[in-house]
Simulated scan of single mutants.
Amino acid sequence: MTDPVDPARSRQMALIRSKDTKPELKVRRLAHSLGYRYRLHGADLPGKPDMVFRSRKAVIFIHGCFWHGHDCKRGNRPPTANADYWRKKIARNVERDTASMEALAAAGWKSLIVWECEIKDSAALERRLREFLDAG
């Protein structure tokens, strides 16, 4: 088991970003190239969505598969070190995500989750963005 205050582990965890991640930047570039305009990190909305399209009353969350408990290969891999802590942490993330999506829906917003594993297929991602953002 790793020491919870191990300096090397702390440095490694500090490198993991919550904003401006590679997947987020790729989705933002694609949306912009398709002509969509948006705001970033809507702090006034539940869950603080990564991309906010106010005129369309739509938001997009870009989730890392591991951190948000996706059922893909990357999201399903169990943590080895401090497994109990990470399982609980991911479960809390999933609960928080669900509550945020419900609160947004109740306020009349439509929302889309783009998973890290889905970003590799640019054509499929483009179709998904267009369908989501152009839907009335």
Rank of each mutant, 00 (worst) to 15 (best):
T98G: 06
L34P: 05
Y85N: 06
L30N: 01
A83K: 11
E131S: 11
I90T: 10
R17Y: 05
T21A: 13
R39V: 08
K48C: 15
W67T: 10
G42P: 03
V114C: 07
G108D: 05
G47Y: 07
E126H: 06
P46C: 09
D44A: 15
G136W: 01
N93F: 05
K73N: 11
S10Y: 06
R17A: 12
I113H: 00
A106N: 09
F66E: 06
R39K: 15
D50F: 00
N82Q: 05
G42L: 00
D44G: 14
G136K: 08
W109E: 03
D20H: 06
S122G: 09
V94M: 14
S122M: 12
R127M: 10
T98D: 08
S122D: 10
A135K: 09
C65R: 05
Y36C: 04
S10W: 03
K120A: 15
R87P: 00
L104H: 02
E102M: 08
E95V: 07
V94F: 02
I62V: 15
P49F: 05
G64H: 08
S55T: 15
K57C: 04
D50K: 00
K110D: 14
A81C: 03
H41F: 15
I60D: 02
P7W: 04
L104W: 00
E102C: 09
R54N: 08
D134V: 09
H63S: 02
Y38C: 11
L30Q: 02
R9G: 12
K89P: 03
A135C: 14
R29D: 15
R54P: 12
R28W: 07
K110Y: 05
R128W: 00
A81L: 08
C72N: 08
V27R: 04
A106T: 05
K110H: 14
R87F: 03
R96I: 04
G108Y: 06
